[in-house]
Computed example of a mutant assay.
Amino acid sequence: MSEPGWTNTAILKVNPRTAGQQSQVIQDKPVTYTHDDHQHGIILLKLQTPVTDVQPALLPDCRRRFRGHNVKLAGEGATTTGPNNKQLNISAIPAHLQCVDMKVVAVSLVELPYGHIFRAKAPNKEICYGDTGGAALHSGKIYGVISFGGEGACQSSATIMDVCKYKNWIKKTIKPGK
């Protein structure tokens, strides 16, 4: 997070790699969701300069919960493993964005300090270091943000921050004019 004297930067347009990355300075201290004195693992950032050439993700339709449906995940995590099938957090970034469809296997979970989450899994697929913060999309809408996976490759489900549980807070926090 933010400490005195630090500058937080958001990197936009990282894929495709030819898109011309943009670095954006974070204008204010990030806003963290807090409930009953517990911070959840979700923050909102306000960029110093408006971004007009990146299509924002649409918020989800939370009336339809989707256990058993697929979500599309994307990230730049490592694609190799080390001894004992353990994920490596120092592997090279893959040349292309990695995308996978995973089936939602558990919904409406609370796991502090992360907060409201759901889990998704696919045979022989996994998220990895470097994928955190990526979107979990369903029908063109963002239903989640990748939080973390297990240490053993393809041995556990992906943990995804449930955007539906924070949708009202997001809308209130980003209301126009703020």
Rank of each mutant, 00 (worst) to 15 (best):
S2Y: 15
S2K: 13
E3H: 14
E3K: 13
P4T: 09
P4A: 14
G5P: 02
W6E: 15
T7N: 10
T7Y: 02
T9V: 15
T9W: 09
T9F: 11
T9I: 15
T9A: 05
A10H: 04
I11P: 00
L12F: 13
R17W: 05
R17D: 09
T18V: 10
G20K: 09
G20A: 08
Q21P: 06
S23F: 15
S23H: 15
Q24E: 14
I26D: 00
I26S: 01
Q27Y: 09
Q27N: 14
D28A: 11
D28F: 13
V31H: 03
T34H: 01
T34A: 07
H35L: 14
D37I: 04
H38P: 01
H38D: 11
H40M: 09
H40D: 15
G41I: 07
I42R: 02
I43H: 08
I43N: 07
K46S: 03
P50N: 11
V51C: 04
T52M: 11
T52A: 11
Q55T: 15
A57H: 06
L58Q: 14
L58S: 12
L59I: 06
P60Y: 06
C62P: 02
R64M: 02
F66W: 07
H69N: 13
V71W: 00
V71Q: 02
L73A: 05
A74Q: 14
G75Y: 03
E76Y: 15
G77W: 04
A78D: 05
T79A: 03
T79N: 11
T80Y: 09
T81Q: 12
G82V: 12
N85Y: 05
K86W: 05
K86G: 02
Q87G: 02
N89Y: 08
S91L: 05
A92Q: 15
I93C: 02
P94S: 04
A95D: 11
A95N: 13
H96F: 12
Q98E: 11
C99K: 15
M102P: 00
V104A: 02
V104N: 00
V105A: 01
A106D: 13
V107W: 01
S108M: 10
S108I: 00
L109C: 06
V110D: 11
E111W: 09
P113S: 07
P113G: 07
Y114V: 09
F118I: 12
F118R: 05
R119H: 13
R119V: 07
A120G: 10
A120C: 12
K121D: 11
E126Y: 10
E126K: 04
I127R: 00
C128G: 01
G130E: 11
G133E: 05
G134W: 01
A136L: 07
A136T: 05
H138S: 04
S139A: 14
S139V: 08
I142F: 03
I142D: 02
Y143M: 05
G144C: 06
G144M: 02
I146G: 01
F148M: 08
F148A: 11
G149S: 09
G150N: 03
E151A: 08
G152S: 04
G152R: 12
G152I: 10
A153I: 10
A153Q: 06
Q155L: 11
S156M: 04
I160E: 02
M161H: 02
M161G: 08
V163S: 00
V163Q: 00
V163E: 01
C164L: 06
K165G: 14
K165Y: 13
Y166Q: 03
N168T: 15
W169F: 01
I170L: 00
K172N: 10
K175Q: 15
G177D: 07
K178Q: 10
